[in-house]
């Protein structure tokens, strides 16, 4: 992004207006402007995060009273087979889920953005509108629709494959342990490919036409211009798209819950951290919900996301050079 709003290039001194205002009035003014946002944000976003982390260091005894146990919940989560097996399963699945997005969603998004940004292309706003449409829909709707389409009961997908002579390829992908997770990831890719497409498209539009004209005068074709000039210039946006994908994926829940339920079947093959967190916190079937272990799972998810964001901010973003036009 164009530099976070926290970053200031030059420390501007207090304006005369502020300087000539009585201190009390200035404080009242700031309270009026910043008060509501800071209060709601702190109370319902930051405080719950901290409280959740605090809760993860407690446990409930048989009487329901809370007891401080330090990091015991985390040790349990990572080492006790009852907890660690599903946890590592969900973490691994989440990584696969993310990998599919990085390998499929982002390259397709880049390619579509590249095509849409070709000069003189007709109907580009129509294509843009249509391809972005699924992104606007609820994950619940998308998940269910694909559930129906891929269902062997309805046979639409099978019919479509038969029509192109690939009928034998069909399988109930969502139902098989070996394919359920990747299929779900691809559904998510189908829905959200519009986001990388639009962000990269916007970045491509920011490249001055003269630069492209200069390259054409130098004799480069469209593909080489894209590969050697446009792509390097939009690398920072691709970095941003990657981190947005990362945060979104390690926080995902709706799609899998909708299509496969809280149990993320078959046999937890599509379980990711979001669904694992939900089951831990709210319980499922006969097992009761466990708020303190749920808080521990949320805390681990927080640190995973934090690690990703820090990796991006302090390593990836610094290496990607931004060019001013």
């Amino acid at each position: 992004m164009r530099g976070s709003f926290a970053k200031r290039t030059m420390a501007e001194p207090l304006s005369q207006v502020v300087a000539s205002m009585p201190r009390g009035r200035f404080l009242a003014l700031m309270a009026l402007f910043l008060g509501p946002a800071v209060a709601i944000y702190t109370l319902f976003s930051i405080y719950p995060l901290i409280a959740t982390m605090a809760l993860s260091t407690y446990t409930t005894d048989s009487s329901g009273a809370y007891q401080f146990v330090g990091l015991v919940n985390f040790v349990t989560l990572l080492t006790d087979a009852v907890w660690s097996k599903p946890f590592w399963n969900a973490a691994w699945n989440n990584l696969v889920f993310f990998a599919v997005h990085m390998l499929v969603q982002n390259p397709i998004g880049i390619a579509l953005a590249g095509l849409l940004s070709l000069p003189g292309l007709k109907l580009k706003s129509l294509y843009r509108t249509v391809i972005f449409l699924p992104t606007m829909l609820s994950v619940v709707i998308v998940g269910f629709s694909w559930n129906l389409i891929l269902s062997p009961l309805w046979g639409v997908a099978e019919g479509a494959l038969k029509a192109v002579g690939l009928g034998s390829w069909f399988a109930p992908w969502l139902g098989l342990p070996s394919t359920a997770l990747v299929t779900l990831a691809l559904i998510s890719v189908w829905q959200f490919v519009g986001i990388p497409m639009m962000l990269i498209y916007a970045a491509l539009l920011n490249i001055p036409d003269e630069l492209i004209d200069a390259a054409r005068v130098d004799g480069l074709g469209h593909f080489r211009i894209f590969w050697h000039i446009k792509l390097p210039l939009v690398l920072p946006t691709i970095g941003l798209v990657s981190i947005l994908t990362f945060v979104g994926n390690f926080n995902a829940f709706d799609l899998i819950y909708t299509v496969k339920g809280a149990l993320a079947g078959p046999n937890f093959a599509s379980d990711i951290l979001g669904t694992f967190f939900y089951r831990t916190f709210f319980g499922f079937q006969l097992q009761l919900g466990n708020p303190t272990m749920g808080a521990a799972v949320a805390t681990v998810m927080f640190f995973i996301i934090l690690a990703g964001v820090c990796l991006y901010l302090f390593i990836v973003q610094r290496r990607l050079r931004r060019y001013a036009f």
Partner: peptide, 17 residues
């Protein structure tokens, strides 16, 4: 900076609280 934490950290993780 404090306000920008929420851009990257999903509020969902505080659901328990």
């Amino acid at each position: 900076l404090f306000l920008s934490i929420g851009i990257m950290v999903p509020i969902r993780l505080g659901s328990v609280a």
